[in-house]
C-alpha cells in the first residue's frame, strides 16, 4: 500500500502543470481505486449467494415450482393471445363467406 502511495505521489508530482488544490485528493483517489477493486468480486458473491440458496432443499424445490408456474403462466398468456387473434381472423373470414361483396369471398372451394 505504501509503495502504491509513493507511486501515486510521484505521478502527481509529474502532473505539475495542473494545479490541484484539494486537501484529500490522495485519499479520495485511493477510495475510488478500492471501490473499483471491489466491483469484479460482486459477481462471485452473487453466485455464492445463489449457490447457498439452492443448496437448501426447500429453496431448491421452491425454485423448481416457481419455474413450472412461470412456464404455465407464460403458456396461458400465449394461448389467450392466440385465441384473440384466431377469433378476429375467423370473424373476418366468416364475413367473407356470407357476403359476396367482400373482395376475397370464397365458399367451400
Amino acid at each position: 500500500m505504501d509503495d502504491n502511495c509513493k507511486q501515486l505521489d510521484e505521478a502527481l508530482e509529474l502532473w505539475k502543470d495542473v494545479k490541484v488544490d484539494h486537501p484529500r485528493l490522495n485519499s479520495r483517489v485511493w477510495a475510488r481505486v478500492a471501490n473499483e477493486d471491489k466491483e469484479p468480486a460482486a459477481l462471485p458473491n452473487f453466485l455464492n449467494l445463489v449457490q447457498s440458496i439452492l443448496s437448501r432443499p426447500m429453496y431448491a424445490s421452491a425454485f423448481v415450482v416457481a419455474c413450472i408456474l412461470g412456464g404455465l403462466l407464460l403458456a396461458e398468456l400465449r394461448v389467450a393471445q392466440q385465441q384473440v387473434e384466431r377469433g378476429n381472423q375467423l370473424a373476418e373470414s366468416y364475413k367473407q363467406v356470407i357476403d359476396p361483396l367482400i373482395k376475397d369471398t370464397y365458399l367451400y372451394d
Binding site: C67, I68, G71, A75, V79, Q82
Partner: peptide, 23 residues
C-alpha cells in the same frame, strides 16, 4: 443441477400447456 431441473420443468410445463390448450 437444480437450475437445470427448474428450467427444463418450466419449459416442459409451458409446452405441455400450450399444446393442450392452443387453438
Amino acid at each position: 443441477v437444480v437450475l437445470s431441473i427448474g428450467l427444463v420443468s418450466g419449459a416442459a410445463a409451458h409446452l405441455g400447456y400450450f399444446n393442450a390448450y392452443a387453438p
